[in-house]
Design a protein around this nucleic acid. Structure first.
Lengths: 342, 342
DNA sequence: GCCCTGAGCTGTGACGTTTCTGCATGACGG
DNA sequence: CCGTCATGCAGAAACGTCACAGCTCAGGGC
């Protein structure tokens, strides 16, 4: 390449990177020759020399042999989309790296930093990365004292309080909770916010906990909750499948939703807009989270100063649908529109 | 590192990579010191030296500023999951790289090969990669004469024939098609398979085409199709949103599904199992495709011989639900099960 | 005593960049 | 005419790894 353009290697480098003291004529000439030859600088050599790969890891903790948990699909897809977009806008590319990957794969890719989704208590991979000084930003408060450089999380307490207030306002007298047995921060914060709210409002807590990783356990727990003698007249389910779990359980017990039972669950599934009745959901806004996480990570990479951990708490969105509206606003059923209306 | 272990650089390399003639004692010693120091070989240097990065690009053609088209969500999520899994199992990691990315990002990452989802006619990025001798495998037959090393695609003709036969068997006399105006291979193959089938079965074709990228156009086209004087009594929609599009249109015209109109559409959305009535869908089995594509790509990378293009055609899955069963099998409505049953 | 062999290690280039330093050359002021 | 300075480029040293060709030493055969 340098030979083809009749200049030195240095000049080629400077010309293509806009550095050095070169007249525009030389720059243009080099670029033109490079174009003609289809020359691309070697990313590997550049990475070796500069110590920057332009690569960001996207890690998702896994609970089995498959890269993502099924229930995280909608959340993950949207979060990954936003993260990819944000990274790209700043010149970085995303590498998908499940936390459970073989170690040789992890150490075989040069990362400038990593986004970790919902890091588990003592993730060995994350600890390793931090020890090597690689910036790590987590989606979700890091469990234990995992020393990440920054984290972004939803305001889970506010979310739960908002939902309970909403349900109470819709006429609920005894609000139940479907929660998890695991000790991750999401479950912990949400549950304690629920207990606090109950205490403040003088309601006896009514909840059932189940192992959230088990795809079948949710339905069983939903049944248990509705079978209790102190059956709640409203339920909030902390996990994605709880909407259908609870709806099915309600049908089994002959409870009408929303008349006998108000329902809300935390999910990104668009399908909940089309169930019978449509179920109110709490959206964690994965897109916003993904963008924020990547911004913080790249700031950490380019700032390079370890600094003190940055914590960013993002609001959630409660999407109110029929399942939690006690008295549906008297909707006049509109006559079938003719095609011309659209 | 070499100094710390009291051996030469070469010995370290050999010990960690299991090469050379070294006694087990030395190997163990080097590994132990490496572990103690938290030493990780530099991926960049290894890539530079060996010419292998262990990275595979995952490219998705985009129709806007966002990385993926919304309708591709479910397909893409599942395909990416499977591809990640397959790549990982063979020691590779996946990099998400939308085709529309800034060029500097593309050239800044050292790829051993790329998976391209649904490459458009003359994708400049793909052409560029091929020119550099980087293996490219596409999901979907490559449009034009894009010189990919291999491709995997569904058997779209068989899929359409299967659906039309299924609908005819369910009692349909005049089957309509909701298709696209674009010239991509999927649309082309499916449409011509439809026309062929019609010809062979002596049915006059009834179809409406619309620009599939436009999120609103589908509903309009569905309306047009059902407004025709030769209104079909069954419709197959080629695109993901067509299920709801057609269902909505049917309601507007007071058509009952499946009694007055049989419905099938091509989609991966689990939500179609829960619509009223549930809609039959054709699944393209993105997981199988993702796995196959990655296997072929890695074979090409490791085989390194250009070879002649490999073509792999995969079957689809027709998931029959109520929307295309003319006479629903006399289902005895089961009484609500008590919790103990589960 | 000498050569041969093989085991166990080391030295020496590359790989393709970037970056730092340095060498010409010509212009310009004194 | 000399010193100074900016301009335009080139040389060389890294970056950390791996492959290849040695080099040393012990042991054994003759």
């Amino acid at each position: 390449m340098a030979a083809a353009a009749g200049v030195s290697i240095t000049t080629v480098s400077d010309a293509l990177n806009g550095k050095g003291r070169l007249p525009d004529a030389t720059r243009r000439h080099v670029r033109e020759v490079a174009n003609r030859l289809g020359y691309r600088p070697s990313a590997a050599a550049r990475t070796l020399r500069t110590g920057r790969s332009g690569l960001i890891g996207l890690t998702v903790t896994t609970y089995g042999e498959e890269p993502f948990t099924f229930t995280e699909f909608a959340y993950f897809a949207e979060m990954a989309r936003a993260a990819t977009s944000a990274a790209l806008a700043r010149g970085y590319a995303l590498v998908i790296l499940p936390a459970s990957s073989r170690h040789d794969v992890w150490s075989n890719v040069a990362l400038d930093g990593t986004v970790v989704i919902d890091p588990s208590d003592h993730d060995p991979v994350v600890a390793d990365l931090v020890r090597q000084g690689i910036p790590v930003v987590s989606d979700g408060r890091p469990a234990g004292n995992l020393p990440v450089h920054a984290w972004v999380d939803n305001d889970h307490e506010q979310a739960v309080i908002g939902i309970l207030d909403h349900l109470a306002e819709a006429g609920a007298r005894r609000i139940g909770l479907l929660t998890g047995t695991s000790t991750d921060t999401y479950t912990r914060l949400s549950t304690s916010a629920y207990l606090d709210w109950c205490e403040r409002h003088g309601q006896e807590p009514v909840y059932e906990a189940y192992p959230a990783h088990d795809p079948c356990a949710g339905a069983v727990a939903a049944d248990r909750l509705l079978a209790r003698p102190d059956r709640p007249d409203a339920v909030y389910g902390l996990f994605d499948p709880n909407g259908t779990d609870l709806l099915a359980a309600a049908r089994r017990y002959g409870l009408r939703v929303p008349d006998d039972l108000l329902l809300v669950c935390c999910s990104e599934r668009p399908a909940y807009a089309a169930t019978e009745p449509p179920i109110s959901t709490l959206s964690l806004k994965p897109g916003r989270i993904g963008t924020a996480v990547v911004q913080l990570l790249i700031d950490a990479i380019e700032g390079a100063e370890p600094g003190e951990p940055v914590e960013q708490v993002m609001p959630t969105d409660l999407i109110v649908r029929a399942s939690s509206r006690r008295r549906p606003p008297r909707t006049t059923v509109s006559p079938p529109r003719s095609p011309e209306d659209r």
